[in-house]
Simulated scan of single mutants.
Amino acid sequence: MSTFDIEQERKHIEESSSFLRNLLNNAKKEHIDLVFPTVLIICGSGLGGIASRISEDSYSIPQSYSEIPHFKVSTVPGHAGKFVFGKMNGTSVVLMEGRLHSYEGYAIQDTVFPLRVLHELGSIKTVIITNAAGGLNRKFQACDLMCINDHINFPGLAGLHPLKGPNFDEYGPRFLPLSDAYDLELRKLLFRKMKELDLKRGLHEGTYAFASGPTFESRAESRMLHLLGADAVGMSTVPEVIVARHCGWRVLALSLITNVSVLDPPASALDDNPIPLDQGMASHSEVLENGKIASLDVERLIEGVVGEL
C-alpha cells in the first residue's frame, strides 16, 4: 500500500501556490483594486450562483483548476471547477466554484489540496463552506438551511482522514482539537444577518454527518445517523473544515437541505398495499433543483456575512 509522501506534497503545494501567486500578481497590473483574499468561500452543489455576488470586476484565475499544476479536476455536475477572485460587499474574497470529493476517485489529501495551496497565499483568515445535504432531523424541510455547529466524521473514524500520515507541523499540531471547529461568533453573525435581511426560509443549527458517497444513504443508514445525533448528512465539507482548522482559519459552514432523507423502513413483502419504494427517493437532479430554489437567499445571506468580515 502506498504511503503519503509529505515532502512531495510540500513541493506540489509550493509549485501550485507559486503559479497562482504569479497569476494574481500579473492581474494586479490590470486590476488596481486587487488585494489578496481574506475570505475563502466554497460553493456546494447548485450554489455556484454565489459568484454573482462578487463585484463586476471579478475574474477567474485561471479559467479551470486543470490549468494549475498538480490540481485535480472537479467532475460532478453543478461544480464548475475554478477559482473566482474579487470583492463581495467590500471584502476581498476567493470562491471555489466546485470542490473535490473522494468518491470521484481522489485521495482524501487531494480533496483538501486547494486549501493548502490557498493558505500559502498568506492572506486568508476565514472560510465559509456551503453544501447540499439530506435532512435527517424530522423538523427539517427541503430548501431549509442548517448552520453546522458540529460534525460526525464517519470516514475519518474509519481511517479515511485528511490529516492521516506525516503531519504538516508548519500548519498545525499533530493532534488537532475539533471541539471548537465551528466558530461561535460567525454562527451568531449568520443568524443575525438572517434576521436583518428578513429572509423567510427556515434556518436551523445542527450536526452534519460526513459520508464518503457517492451513493445516497440507505433507510437503515439514515436511521442510524439520526439516532447517533446527526441532523443532516452529506458527502463533503468535513475534510475541508479539518484542514481549515489545521491552517488556523475560522470556519462557518452552511448546509442547504435539498432533500429529506427517508427514515422509515422499506415496505414489507408481506404487506398487501405497500408504500412504493421510490417514494421520497433522493436524486442529484433534486439536489440541483432545490439548490436553485433556495440559492438567492443563500447568496444574500453569504453576502451579508462577508460584509462584516
Rank of each mutant, 00 (worst) to 15 (best):
K193W: 14
R223Q: 05
G202Y: 03
R223G: 03
R201C: 12
L203D: 07
L199M: 13
F210A: 03
E185Q: 13
A211C: 13
S222M: 08
L228N: 14
M194N: 08
K200F: 02
F216A: 03
R201T: 08
F216K: 01
G229Q: 02
Y208A: 01
R219A: 09
A211M: 15
E217T: 08
P214I: 13
R201A: 10
R187V: 00
R219P: 04
L197F: 00
K188G: 11
Y208R: 00
F191C: 09
E221Y: 10
L225N: 01
E217G: 04
K200I: 11
L228R: 15
F216T: 01
P214C: 10
L189I: 12
R223S: 02
D231T: 01
L228D: 07
S222Q: 03
T207Q: 01
S222P: 02
S218N: 07
T215M: 12
L197N: 08
T207I: 12
E217M: 08
E196H: 09
F216R: 04
D231P: 00
M224E: 10
M194R: 10
L190N: 01
L197M: 13
E196F: 05
L227D: 04
K188P: 06
A211I: 11
E196R: 06
G206Y: 03
M224Q: 07
R219V: 03
L225V: 03
E205C: 08
K195E: 15
F191N: 11
R223I: 02
M224N: 09
E205A: 10
K200C: 12
L186C: 10
G213A: 07
G213I: 02
H204W: 15
K195S: 15
K195C: 12
L190A: 02
F216M: 04
L228T: 13
L203F: 09
E221I: 09
R187L: 06
K188T: 11
M224W: 05
K200G: 14
Y208M: 06
L203Y: 03
D198A: 15
L190M: 10
S222A: 14
L199F: 11
L190Q: 03
R187E: 04
A220W: 06
L203S: 07
A220Q: 06
L199S: 11
